[in-house]
Structures are given as structure tokens and as C-alpha cells.
Simulated scan of single mutants.
Amino acid sequence: MAKAVVNTTSPLAGRRLLRDVNRLLASGYRTTVDDDMANLDVRFEGPLGTAYEGGVWTVNVAMPLEYPLMAPRVRFFTKILHPNIDFTTGLVCMNVFKQAWSASYDLVNIFDTFLPQLLRHPNPHDPLNHQAAAIMKHSEKLFYEHVVLCLRMYALPVFLAPSDLVEEGLEKRSSDLSLSDLLSDEDDDGDDDNAAALTAPPSAGADQVGD
């Protein structure tokens, strides 16, 4: 990799960014860093004791020129089902970081604290994925079942073939709800109606595959 050209015009801020990137690397996070340190791709594992446990996501961190005074922009490259994360773009709700961020925090805080807390405590009342928020408001149990379904489709460290997913009861439903319906990020004023349609678990009513 070429010598880093820090993404800032301030020598002091440049030293801070270099320090924080090195601290992230030293903390054991598998990270790819652009030469100008403007973007980092970080391997993030789901927190233990949550529905996201066992998943592995690639998370992109875009560093603003005003870092550390301004919070980085965080987005999931790997698909994830969460009411505060846009399913299509992977962008994390910036309210999460703007309200909590201060110049005393660094990149390690994002992956040790902010993202684990976000996955442990989804907030359906400030959603980016409105369908995910609707199902969580209707039934947390059903929401977490679909989190696991999505995790196994996109975020397992070892790829599972479709036949493996079917054997584990994770086949895509062909009845009243498709996975694409659930994962839609479109705002819908009929959230209550959508939630009412999501009363069956993921495997309920699925057509038998291979008959």
C-alpha cells in the first residue's frame, strides 16, 4: 500500500486520524484502508446474545474532513435487517451517531460500543427500514426470526447452499409475505396493515421444495 495521505488539511487532525486507524488495527479488527484514509472497510461480527450473533458484516466507514469533530458515516456493505439501517444502501441512521458522538470517541468506539448497542437495542420509532420497524412493533419474536433468516442468507461466514437453508426451515415464503416485501425500505403509511400481515413465522405456509 502506498504511503498514506491523510484526508484532512490539519496536521493535528491528520495525526489524530492516523492514531485512530492504527488503534483500530491493533484492536484486532480486520480492516482495509484507502491510501488517503478516507474510507475503511471493517469486518464486524454480530454481538453475542443477540439475533445477530454468528453473522459477519463488512462495514464501511467514510471519514469526514472534520473528523473527529464530526462523526464518520457508517454503512453496511453486507445486507442486514434492522429498523435503523437502510436495507438497500446499508446506511446507519445518523441520529444514532450525531446524538452520542464527541471528539473524544474514535473508530474503536464505533465497533466496540456504538454498533453493538445498535444491534442489541433496535429502535422501531426512528426507522430507515419501515417494514422492519412495522414487524418489530407488531411482534418482536417474529422480527428476530426474520433477522436470523436474513443473517443466514447474507451474513454467514461460510456460504450455505439454498438446499441447506430449506433443510433448516429458512425457505422463502410463497404465501402472504415474500422476503423482498419484508426487506423493502419504502416508507409506507400503512405500517399497521403491513404488520398485521406478518403474523406467521418465516417457515409457515411455505411450499415444499423438491416435490
Rank of each mutant, 00 (worst) to 15 (best):
P72F: 09
I80D: 13
N109C: 12
N123Y: 01
N123W: 01
V108M: 00
A100R: 15
D112G: 06
L65Q: 15
E145Y: 02
F97P: 14
T78G: 02
Q131W: 07
F97Q: 05
K137N: 07
A103V: 01
V148I: 14
C150I: 06
H121L: 11
L81A: 10
K137E: 13
V74C: 08
F97C: 09
G90L: 10
C93P: 00
L149V: 05
V96Q: 13
L115Q: 03
I110S: 04
P124F: 11
L65Y: 06
V147P: 03
H146Y: 15
P127T: 09
F111D: 12
V147R: 02
G90R: 14
T113D: 08
L118E: 07
P116S: 10
L107N: 12
R73E: 07
C93L: 12
F76P: 02
A103S: 14
P83V: 04
L128P: 12
L149P: 06
A134D: 01
C150N: 00
L91H: 13
L69A: 14
F97L: 02
M94P: 13
F143G: 12
Y105T: 08
F76I: 06
D126Q: 03
R75C: 03
M136L: 03
V148M: 12
H130N: 15
Q99D: 06
I110R: 06
H138A: 06
S139P: 00
L142F: 15
H130A: 13
N95K: 08
A133C: 02
T113F: 10
Y144G: 03
L149Q: 00
P72V: 00
P83C: 10
E140V: 00
E140T: 11
R152Q: 08
R73S: 05
L91F: 07
V108I: 08
H125L: 12
N109W: 13
A62P: 10
L151T: 03
S102A: 05
F76S: 12
N109R: 15
H146C: 10
M136I: 02
G90D: 14
T113S: 13
H125P: 00
P116L: 09
F77A: 15
H121K: 00
L69M: 11
P83W: 03
P83H: 07
I110Y: 09
G90I: 05
L149D: 01
